[in-house]
Design a protein around this nucleic acid. Structure first.
Lengths: 168, 168
DNA sequence: GGATTATCCATTGACGCCCATGTCTTCCCA
DNA sequence: TGGGAAGACATGGGCGTCAATGGATAATCC
Protein backbone atom coordinates (compact mmCIF):
# COMPACT_ATOMS: atom_id res chain seq x y z
CA UNK A 1 0.00 0.00 0.00
CA UNK A 2 1.16 3.48 -0.80
CA UNK A 3 1.85 5.82 2.10
CA UNK A 4 0.87 9.31 1.06
CA UNK A 5 1.59 11.95 3.65
CA UNK A 6 1.80 15.72 3.88
CA UNK A 7 0.78 18.58 1.63
CA UNK A 8 2.25 19.94 -1.58
CA UNK A 9 1.17 22.79 -3.82
CA UNK A 10 1.86 22.68 -7.56
CA UNK A 11 0.95 24.99 -10.40
CA UNK A 12 -1.22 24.19 -13.40
CA UNK A 13 0.34 25.31 -16.67
CA UNK A 14 -1.64 26.69 -19.57
CA UNK A 15 -1.98 23.26 -21.07
CA UNK A 16 -3.72 22.09 -17.92
CA UNK A 17 -0.84 19.97 -16.68
CA UNK A 18 0.20 19.73 -13.05
CA UNK A 19 3.05 17.74 -11.52
CA UNK A 20 2.16 15.06 -9.02
CA UNK A 21 4.52 15.74 -6.10
CA UNK A 22 7.61 13.62 -6.26
CA UNK A 23 7.12 12.06 -2.80
CA UNK A 24 3.69 10.84 -3.91
CA UNK A 25 5.03 9.51 -7.18
CA UNK A 26 7.74 7.69 -5.29
CA UNK A 27 5.28 6.19 -2.84
CA UNK A 28 2.99 5.09 -5.65
CA UNK A 29 5.87 3.61 -7.59
CA UNK A 30 6.96 1.63 -4.57
CA UNK A 31 3.45 0.36 -4.11
CA UNK A 32 3.14 -0.49 -7.77
CA UNK A 33 6.07 -2.85 -7.57
CA UNK A 34 3.96 -5.16 -5.48
CA UNK A 35 1.19 -5.21 -8.02
CA UNK A 36 0.79 -5.93 -11.69
CA UNK A 37 3.69 -4.66 -13.68
CA UNK A 38 1.21 -3.66 -16.34
CA UNK A 39 -1.12 -1.82 -14.00
CA UNK A 40 -2.41 1.52 -15.20
CA UNK A 41 0.30 4.12 -14.77
CA UNK A 42 -1.57 7.15 -13.55
CA UNK A 43 -4.17 8.25 -11.06
CA UNK A 44 -7.85 7.63 -10.64
CA UNK A 45 -9.67 10.78 -9.53
CA UNK A 46 -13.25 11.39 -8.45
CA UNK A 47 -15.16 14.07 -6.55
CA UNK A 48 -15.21 13.83 -2.81
CA UNK A 49 -18.79 13.70 -1.60
CA UNK A 50 -17.90 15.31 1.72
CA UNK A 51 -15.83 18.23 0.53
CA UNK A 52 -15.41 20.52 -2.46
CA UNK A 53 -12.33 18.57 -3.37
CA UNK A 54 -11.16 15.57 -5.36
CA UNK A 55 -9.99 12.19 -4.25
CA UNK A 56 -7.26 10.41 -6.16
CA UNK A 57 -5.72 7.01 -5.77
CA UNK A 58 -3.92 4.21 -7.52
CA UNK A 59 -5.46 1.35 -9.41
CA UNK A 60 -5.34 -1.08 -6.50
CA UNK A 61 -7.60 1.14 -4.46
CA UNK A 62 -10.14 1.54 -7.23
CA UNK A 63 -10.13 -2.17 -7.68
CA UNK A 64 -11.13 -2.60 -4.09
CA UNK A 65 -13.96 -0.14 -4.59
CA UNK A 66 -15.17 -2.05 -7.59
CA UNK A 67 -15.00 -5.26 -5.63
CA UNK A 68 -17.12 -3.63 -3.00
CA UNK A 69 -19.91 -3.61 -5.52
CA UNK A 70 -19.66 -7.34 -5.83
CA UNK A 71 -19.35 -8.08 -2.16
CA UNK A 72 -22.31 -6.92 -0.13
CA UNK A 73 -20.98 -8.51 3.01
CA UNK A 74 -18.37 -5.86 3.25
CA UNK A 75 -20.42 -2.88 2.21
CA UNK A 76 -23.71 -1.65 3.48
CA UNK A 77 -26.34 -0.72 0.93
CA UNK A 78 -25.45 2.92 1.42
CA UNK A 79 -21.83 2.22 0.82
CA UNK A 80 -22.69 0.16 -2.17
CA UNK A 81 -24.54 3.08 -3.66
CA UNK A 82 -21.63 5.29 -2.88
CA UNK A 83 -19.16 3.01 -4.57
CA UNK A 84 -21.31 3.05 -7.68
CA UNK A 85 -21.46 6.83 -7.69
CA UNK A 86 -17.73 7.05 -7.23
CA UNK A 87 -16.97 4.71 -10.07
CA UNK A 88 -19.30 6.57 -12.39
CA UNK A 89 -17.70 9.88 -11.69
CA UNK A 90 -14.13 8.68 -11.61
CA UNK A 91 -11.65 9.55 -14.33
CA UNK A 92 -8.43 7.93 -15.39
CA UNK A 93 -5.66 10.50 -15.40
CA UNK A 94 -2.57 9.18 -17.20
CA UNK A 95 0.80 10.45 -16.10
CA UNK A 96 3.26 11.85 -18.61
CA UNK A 97 6.99 10.98 -18.50
CA UNK A 98 7.61 13.97 -16.22
CA UNK A 99 5.00 12.80 -13.74
CA UNK A 100 2.28 15.27 -14.65
CA UNK A 101 -1.46 14.72 -14.97
CA UNK A 102 -4.22 16.74 -16.63
CA UNK A 103 -7.39 17.38 -14.67
CA UNK A 104 -10.56 17.22 -16.70
CA UNK A 105 -12.81 20.26 -16.65
CA UNK A 106 -15.57 18.63 -14.65
CA UNK A 107 -13.13 17.65 -11.95
CA UNK A 108 -11.55 21.08 -11.88
CA UNK A 109 -14.90 22.78 -11.66
CA UNK A 110 -16.09 20.56 -8.85
CA UNK A 111 -13.14 21.54 -6.67
CA UNK A 112 -13.05 25.14 -7.92
CA UNK A 113 -9.45 24.64 -8.90
CA UNK A 114 -7.98 27.39 -11.02
CA UNK A 115 -4.21 27.81 -11.17
CA UNK A 116 -2.86 25.88 -8.19
CA UNK A 117 -3.54 22.43 -6.80
CA UNK A 118 -2.98 21.37 -3.24
CA UNK A 119 -2.13 17.68 -2.93
CA UNK A 120 -3.02 16.30 0.49
CA UNK A 121 -1.71 12.91 1.57
CA UNK A 122 -4.33 10.66 3.14
CA UNK A 123 -2.50 7.42 3.50
CA UNK A 124 -3.64 5.13 0.74
CA UNK A 125 -5.13 7.96 -1.28
CA UNK A 126 -4.77 11.68 -1.72
CA UNK A 127 -7.06 14.66 -1.93
CA UNK A 128 -6.77 17.52 -4.40
CA UNK A 129 -7.90 20.93 -3.18
CA UNK A 130 -8.07 24.51 -4.21
CA UNK A 131 -5.56 25.85 -1.65
CA UNK A 132 -7.80 28.53 -0.16
CA UNK A 133 -10.73 26.16 0.14
CA UNK A 134 -8.55 23.76 2.06
CA UNK A 135 -7.39 26.42 4.48
CA UNK A 136 -10.98 27.19 5.37
CA UNK A 137 -11.75 23.52 6.04
CA UNK A 138 -8.57 22.24 7.54
CA UNK A 139 -8.09 24.71 10.36
CA UNK A 140 -11.40 23.52 11.72
CA UNK A 141 -10.50 19.86 11.60
CA UNK A 142 -7.23 20.49 13.34
CA UNK A 143 -8.80 22.58 16.07
CA UNK A 144 -11.54 20.03 16.55
CA UNK A 145 -9.03 17.29 17.11
CA UNK A 146 -7.10 19.45 19.51
CA UNK A 147 -10.17 20.58 21.42
CA UNK A 148 -11.38 17.06 21.91
CA UNK A 149 -8.06 16.18 23.39
CA UNK A 150 -7.91 13.30 21.01
CA UNK A 151 -5.01 11.07 21.67
CA UNK A 152 -2.98 8.96 19.41
CA UNK A 153 -4.48 5.55 19.62
CA UNK A 154 -3.24 3.30 16.91
CA UNK A 155 -5.71 1.08 15.16
CA UNK A 156 -5.33 -2.46 16.29
CA UNK A 157 -4.40 -4.72 13.49
CA UNK A 158 -4.91 -8.43 13.83
CA UNK A 159 -1.53 -10.04 13.80
CA UNK A 160 0.28 -6.84 14.56
CA UNK A 161 2.57 -7.35 17.47
CA UNK A 162 3.85 -3.83 17.84
CA UNK A 163 2.50 -3.18 21.28
CA UNK A 164 2.56 0.60 21.13
CA UNK A 165 -0.12 2.30 23.09
CA UNK A 166 -1.46 5.80 23.08
CA UNK A 167 0.37 8.64 24.71
CA UNK A 168 1.17 8.99 28.35
CA UNK B 1 10.16 -1.33 16.72
CA UNK B 2 12.60 1.41 17.55
CA UNK B 3 13.34 2.17 21.18
CA UNK B 4 14.03 5.86 21.63
CA UNK B 5 15.17 7.01 25.04
CA UNK B 6 16.68 10.10 26.61
CA UNK B 7 17.01 13.75 25.68
CA UNK B 8 19.39 15.54 23.34
CA UNK B 9 19.70 19.15 22.24
CA UNK B 10 21.04 20.03 18.80
CA UNK B 11 21.46 23.26 16.91
CA UNK B 12 19.76 24.31 13.68
CA UNK B 13 22.18 25.72 11.13
CA UNK B 14 21.37 28.53 8.75
CA UNK B 15 20.23 26.10 6.11
CA UNK B 16 17.62 24.82 8.53
CA UNK B 17 19.35 21.51 9.16
CA UNK B 18 19.59 19.78 12.52
CA UNK B 19 21.29 16.51 13.38
CA UNK B 20 19.12 13.71 14.66
CA UNK B 21 20.94 12.47 17.80
CA UNK B 22 23.15 9.53 17.04
CA UNK B 23 21.46 7.20 19.56
CA UNK B 24 18.12 7.82 17.85
CA UNK B 25 19.59 7.28 14.42
CA UNK B 26 21.10 4.03 15.56
CA UNK B 27 17.83 2.83 17.05
CA UNK B 28 15.94 3.73 13.90
CA UNK B 29 18.50 2.04 11.69
CA UNK B 30 18.25 -1.12 13.74
CA UNK B 31 14.49 -1.05 13.46
CA UNK B 32 14.67 -0.42 9.75
CA UNK B 33 16.55 -3.63 9.16
CA UNK B 34 13.43 -5.56 10.03
CA UNK B 35 11.38 -3.72 7.45
CA UNK B 36 11.51 -3.09 3.75
CA UNK B 37 14.99 -2.41 2.53
CA UNK B 38 13.53 0.29 0.32
CA UNK B 39 11.56 1.95 3.08
CA UNK B 40 11.76 5.71 3.31
CA UNK B 41 14.99 6.76 4.99
CA UNK B 42 14.03 9.62 7.23
CA UNK B 43 11.47 10.74 9.76
CA UNK B 44 7.79 11.52 9.64
CA UNK B 45 6.95 14.54 11.78
CA UNK B 46 3.62 16.09 12.74
CA UNK B 47 2.29 18.53 15.35
CA UNK B 48 1.36 17.17 18.73
CA UNK B 49 -2.23 17.89 19.72
CA UNK B 50 -1.51 18.13 23.38
CA UNK B 51 1.64 20.20 23.41
CA UNK B 52 3.37 22.94 21.47
CA UNK B 53 5.77 20.34 20.16
CA UNK B 54 6.27 17.91 17.32
CA UNK B 55 6.00 14.18 17.15
CA UNK B 56 8.31 12.22 14.92
CA UNK B 57 8.44 8.57 14.05
CA UNK B 58 9.55 6.06 11.46
CA UNK B 59 7.63 4.80 8.47
CA UNK B 60 6.26 1.69 10.16
CA UNK B 61 4.40 3.86 12.63
CA UNK B 62 2.82 6.04 9.96
CA UNK B 63 1.85 3.00 7.98
CA UNK B 64 -0.16 1.72 10.89
CA UNK B 65 -1.97 5.02 11.07
CA UNK B 66 -2.69 4.97 7.37
CA UNK B 67 -4.03 1.47 7.56
CA UNK B 68 -6.67 2.68 9.95
CA UNK B 69 -7.93 4.84 7.12
CA UNK B 70 -7.33 2.36 4.41
CA UNK B 71 -10.47 0.37 4.79
CA UNK B 72 -13.17 1.82 2.65
CA UNK B 73 -15.24 3.03 5.54
CA UNK B 74 -16.39 6.33 4.19
CA UNK B 75 -18.36 7.30 7.25
CA UNK B 76 -15.38 8.00 9.39
CA UNK B 77 -15.42 8.09 13.14
CA UNK B 78 -13.29 10.15 15.47
CA UNK B 79 -10.30 7.89 15.21
CA UNK B 80 -10.34 8.11 11.44
CA UNK B 81 -10.62 11.86 11.61
CA UNK B 82 -7.64 11.98 13.87
CA UNK B 83 -5.58 9.77 11.65
CA UNK B 84 -6.52 11.93 8.68
CA UNK B 85 -5.53 15.12 10.44
CA UNK B 86 -2.24 13.61 11.45
CA UNK B 87 -1.46 12.38 7.96
CA UNK B 88 -2.34 15.73 6.44
CA UNK B 89 -0.12 17.64 8.82
CA UNK B 90 2.71 15.18 8.71
CA UNK B 91 5.83 15.82 6.71
CA UNK B 92 8.42 13.50 5.26
CA UNK B 93 11.78 14.64 6.51
CA UNK B 94 14.52 12.86 4.58
CA UNK B 95 17.83 12.37 6.34
CA UNK B 96 21.05 13.46 4.69
CA UNK B 97 24.19 11.30 4.79
CA UNK B 98 25.24 13.03 8.01
CA UNK B 99 21.96 12.16 9.70
CA UNK B 100 20.42 15.62 9.55
CA UNK B 101 16.84 16.62 8.78
CA UNK B 102 15.29 19.92 7.75
CA UNK B 103 12.24 21.07 9.63
CA UNK B 104 9.68 22.81 7.45
CA UNK B 105 8.57 26.29 8.48
CA UNK B 106 5.09 25.24 9.52
CA UNK B 107 6.47 22.59 11.83
CA UNK B 108 9.02 24.98 13.30
CA UNK B 109 6.40 27.63 13.88
CA UNK B 110 4.03 25.25 15.55
CA UNK B 111 6.62 24.28 18.15
CA UNK B 112 8.11 27.78 18.34
CA UNK B 113 11.46 26.32 17.49
CA UNK B 114 14.12 28.86 16.60
CA UNK B 115 17.76 27.86 16.90
CA UNK B 116 17.80 24.73 19.05
CA UNK B 117 15.81 21.53 19.08
CA UNK B 118 15.31 19.23 22.02
CA UNK B 119 14.85 15.61 21.01
CA UNK B 120 12.93 13.61 23.57
CA UNK B 121 12.79 9.84 23.36
CA UNK B 122 9.29 8.47 23.74
CA UNK B 123 9.73 4.82 23.03
CA UNK B 124 8.49 4.12 19.55
CA UNK B 125 8.53 7.79 18.63
CA UNK B 126 10.18 10.99 19.68
CA UNK B 127 9.11 14.50 20.44
CA UNK B 128 10.80 17.66 19.25
CA UNK B 129 10.62 20.67 21.55
CA UNK B 130 11.80 24.20 21.88
CA UNK B 131 14.04 23.63 24.94
CA UNK B 132 12.53 26.38 27.10
CA UNK B 133 9.00 25.32 26.25
CA UNK B 134 9.85 21.83 27.38
CA UNK B 135 11.20 23.03 30.69
CA UNK B 136 8.04 24.99 31.35
CA UNK B 137 5.82 22.11 30.36
CA UNK B 138 7.83 19.61 32.32
CA UNK B 139 7.61 21.70 35.47
CA UNK B 140 3.86 21.74 35.16
CA UNK B 141 3.70 18.04 34.48
CA UNK B 142 5.71 17.40 37.58
CA UNK B 143 3.36 19.46 39.71
CA UNK B 144 0.36 17.77 38.19
CA UNK B 145 1.79 14.35 38.77
CA UNK B 146 2.54 15.29 42.34
CA UNK B 147 -0.99 16.51 42.93
CA UNK B 148 -2.50 13.43 41.41
CA UNK B 149 -0.01 11.04 42.87
CA UNK B 150 -2.58 8.98 44.69
CA UNK B 151 -5.13 8.50 41.95
CA UNK B 152 -2.53 7.64 39.38
CA UNK B 153 -1.73 4.52 41.29
CA UNK B 154 -5.21 3.20 40.80
CA UNK B 155 -5.43 0.50 38.19
CA UNK B 156 -7.57 1.50 35.27
CA UNK B 157 -10.75 -0.49 35.03
CA UNK B 158 -12.65 -0.79 31.78
CA UNK B 159 -15.91 1.11 32.02
CA UNK B 160 -14.72 3.14 34.96
CA UNK B 161 -15.11 6.80 34.13
CA UNK B 162 -11.64 7.85 35.05
CA UNK B 163 -12.17 11.54 34.47
CA UNK B 164 -8.68 11.63 33.08
CA UNK B 165 -8.23 13.02 29.57
CA UNK B 166 -6.62 10.12 27.81
CA UNK B 167 -9.04 8.19 25.71
CA UNK B 168 -12.52 9.28 24.87
C1' DG C 1 -7.12 18.62 -41.72
C1' DG C 2 -7.76 20.78 -37.50
C1' DA C 3 -7.62 20.17 -32.87
C1' DT C 4 -6.34 17.70 -28.99
C1' DT C 5 -3.13 14.78 -26.62
C1' DA C 6 1.46 12.68 -25.75
C1' DT C 7 6.62 12.67 -25.82
C1' DC C 8 10.83 15.16 -25.85
C1' DC C 9 13.95 18.91 -24.63
C1' DA C 10 15.40 23.32 -22.07
C1' DT C 11 15.56 26.27 -17.98
C1' DT C 12 16.01 27.37 -13.17
C1' DG C 13 15.91 27.20 -8.50
C1' DA C 14 16.07 24.37 -4.51
C1' DC C 15 18.08 20.81 -1.97
C1' DG C 16 20.71 16.67 -1.41
C1' DC C 17 25.57 15.04 -1.42
C1' DC C 18 30.18 15.59 -0.39
C1' DC C 19 34.03 17.29 2.04
C1' DA C 20 36.11 20.26 5.64
C1' DT C 21 36.08 21.97 10.32
C1' DG C 22 35.19 22.11 15.16
C1' DT C 23 34.42 20.19 19.70
C1' DC C 24 33.97 16.94 23.12
C1' DT C 25 34.98 12.61 25.18
C1' DT C 26 37.64 8.66 25.75
C1' DC C 27 41.56 6.02 25.74
C1' DC C 28 46.38 5.27 26.14
C1' DC C 29 50.77 5.77 28.03
C1' DA C 30 54.34 8.13 30.44
C1' DT D 1 47.12 10.64 37.44
C1' DG D 2 47.52 14.02 34.01
C1' DG D 3 48.52 15.31 29.31
C1' DG D 4 48.11 14.38 24.66
C1' DA D 5 46.38 11.86 20.79
C1' DA D 6 42.59 9.89 18.40
C1' DG D 7 38.01 8.90 17.38
C1' DA D 8 33.15 10.13 17.19
C1' DC D 9 29.67 13.16 16.45
C1' DA D 10 27.88 17.65 15.51
C1' DT D 11 28.28 21.59 12.39
C1' DG D 12 29.35 24.61 8.34
C1' DG D 13 29.67 25.56 3.48
C1' DG D 14 30.32 24.71 -1.74
C1' DC D 15 28.65 22.45 -5.61
C1' DG D 16 26.24 19.18 -8.55
C1' DT D 17 21.92 17.08 -9.41
C1' DC D 18 17.13 16.63 -9.64
C1' DA D 19 12.30 18.15 -9.53
C1' DA D 20 9.03 21.52 -11.13
C1' DT D 21 7.86 24.20 -14.94
C1' DG D 22 7.59 25.95 -19.67
C1' DG D 23 7.64 25.27 -24.34
C1' DA D 24 8.32 22.79 -28.94
C1' DT D 25 7.54 18.91 -31.77
C1' DA D 26 5.39 14.50 -32.91
C1' DA D 27 1.37 11.34 -32.69
C1' DT D 28 -3.61 10.43 -32.52
C1' DC D 29 -8.48 11.10 -32.88
C1' DC D 30 -12.66 12.86 -35.00
Amino acid sequence: MALLVGRHVNRIDKKGRVSVPKPFRAALARSRQDQDADAFNGLYAFPSFKYPALEACEEAFMTRLAQGLEDLDVFSDDQDDLAAVILENARELPMDPEGRIVLTNDLRDYAHIKSDVLFVGRGARMMLWEPKAYDAQRGQAFERAKARGMTLKLPKRPGASAGEGGDE
